[in-house]
Design a protein around this nucleic acid. Structure first.
Length: 423
RNA sequence: GGAGAGAUGGCAGAGUGGUCGAUUGCGACGGUCUUGAAAACCGUUGACUGUUACAGGUCCGGGGGUUCGAAUCCCUCUCUCUCCGCCA
């Protein structure tokens, strides 16, 4: 969530940011500012009263000790009266705090200055493109036909076991996915990321910390009896590793990576967009997360973009990098780069990674902080990105590399596959 | 699932109603000494809120209660540990 200080010092920046993000309820900003003033006002009254009560109570102890019982009794009455008043003030304060919190939490993060204006995905800015576009033979097939032809993935079997969007990988399809995961994790750890295996379910607090709650619970599978959520991305458990932590400045940046399945309800999608591997309820992803110094988080972001880009180059896939416009960015992000890979047989770009700087939006909720040299405590910045999401990478690898005799995989996978041709 | 014990500052561990935000030890940081390091000695060392600043306020797992006053008493929830059972 946004920091309350900003409302006191730079209201215009908030308004401008919200507008760029295509956020409509701008009057919330004024409501927050006046509520904040009211809250502090009540707080001052309440604390002054508490100070007085504390002082009197303390003196009662001394009176009792010196045997002045009557005076003590008198003081007791005095405090009792103050307590009544204090109770009312405390209730008012709690109410104001709750209202204030609810309002602040309802505001999205502010976009970075480099974020292009715009409302729809069409207005995203193409930063650069790379890789070679494939030339396919006349009978080129989309991946859902290839997976059937070579017996790599069974979508209908998944439907029987669970439902649509839960594919069953088999044979070399399963092997390829495992190889990719292994390769991605090796690539990340070699770049200095620490590997984690984390829980696939999180509690409400964790889901709140990264911004899935309070608004997006509909996108997550909910284990109601235990109040757990199946993770929509390993960003949630990974970032929450540092929830409520104060690290030393010298520990920054913290670099974490992890592989997990991800679960998304994604209600309301249909048609060719969700065909095959394009959109699933359960899919695998390798994630990278960093906790960075606020002064360096945009360098960190660029570094993560380079990192993911190199990975796509190593896989020899044609890709492009987009800087998302204000209207297409996620609620919590300040700047997001999307990576898309060209799916030759479907003739469309598929998002395979999204790399974002959240600045202090998540860390303010999670209280992820660092202590500088002089002992002062500041909020850190959090960033994350996929490196990479598996299904669409699988789809593009299959579609783009299909030849008469099978699918020819890129040589970087040689270390992890028995055989670089799927047939 | 059954029985019991516990939750205090980075960690360990005191504190059972009135200067306790909390003794002490370790760790960390600074200093003295040393060519340097270790040892020894001295000092500093929780967070949140709030004020121009000082003050003030809050926090001893969470929530509630008793009391003029709670880390300390009561209720409740959560979590941890030990033993038994079950189990990948």
């Amino acid at each position: 969530m946004l920091q309350i200080q900003l409302f006191r010092t730079d209201k215009n920046r908030i308004i401008e940011g919200l507008q760029k993000k295509n956020f409509k309820d701008l009057q919330i900003v004024d409501a927050i500012i006046s509520l904040d003033e009211e809250k502090r006002n009540i707080q001052q009254q309440s604390e002054a009263l508490a100070a007085s009560s504390n002082a009197i109570s303390k003196s009662i102890g001394q009176l009792m000790a010196t045997g002045k019982k009557e005076e003590a009794e008198q003081k007791k009455q005095e405090v009792a009266q103050q307590k009544e008043e204090a109770k009312a003030l405390a209730a008012k304060l709690a109410d104001a705090e709750q209202q204030l919190h609810d309002l602040i939490v309802s505001l999205p993060n502010l976009p970075h200055t480099s974020v292009p204006a715009g409302k729809t995905p069409e207005e995203n800015e193409i930063v650069r493109e790379g890789g070679k576009m494939p030339e396919l033979h006349a009978e080129a097939k989309p991946h859902w036909e290839l997976t059937e032809k070579y017996d790599l993935i069974d979508f209908e079997l998944g439907t029987r076991i669970t439902g649509s969007g839960f594919p069953v990988y088999k044979n070399k399809g399963a092997r390829l996915q495992r190889a990719l995961i292994q390769y991605f994790l090796d690539y990340n750890t070699e770049a200095g990321y620490t590997e984690f295996q984390v829980p696939l379910m999180v509690n409400e607090e964790s889901a709140y910390g990264t911004g899935q709650l309070p608004d997006k619970e509909g996108q997550m599978y909910h284990i109601q009896d235990d109040k757990f959520f199946l993770i929509p991305t390993s960003e949630v458990p990974l970032t929450n590793i540092y929830r409520d932590e104060i690290v030393k400045e010298t520990q920054l940046p913290v670099k974490m990576t992890g592989y997990t399945p991800c679960f998304r309800r994604e209600a309301g999608s249909y048609g060719k967009d969700v065909r095959g591997l394009n959109r699933l309820h359960q899919f695998d992803k390798v994630e990278i997360v960093q906790i960075a110094h606020p002064d360096k988080s945009y360098d960190t972001l660029e570094g993560m973009v380079k990192h993911v880009e190199q990975l796509l180059q190593n896989l020899e896939l044609p890709y492009r990098i987009l800087r998302l416009c204000g209207g297409d960015m996620s609620f919590t992000s300040a700047l997001t780069y999307d990576f898309e890979v060209y799916s030759a047989a479907q003739q469309r770009w598929l998002e395979v990674s999204s790399v974002s700087n959240f600045e202090s939006y998540q860390t303010n909720r999670m209280k992820i902080r660092f202590k500088d040299e002089s002992g002062k405590i500041h909020l850190a910045h959090s960033l994350n990105g996929s490196s990479l999401a598996l299904p669409r990478i699988m789809a593009c690898l299959m579609e783009n590399n299909q030849q008469e005799d099978g699918i020819h995989l890129p040589s970087v996978l040689g270390k992890y596959m028995k055989d670089l041709i799927l047939n």
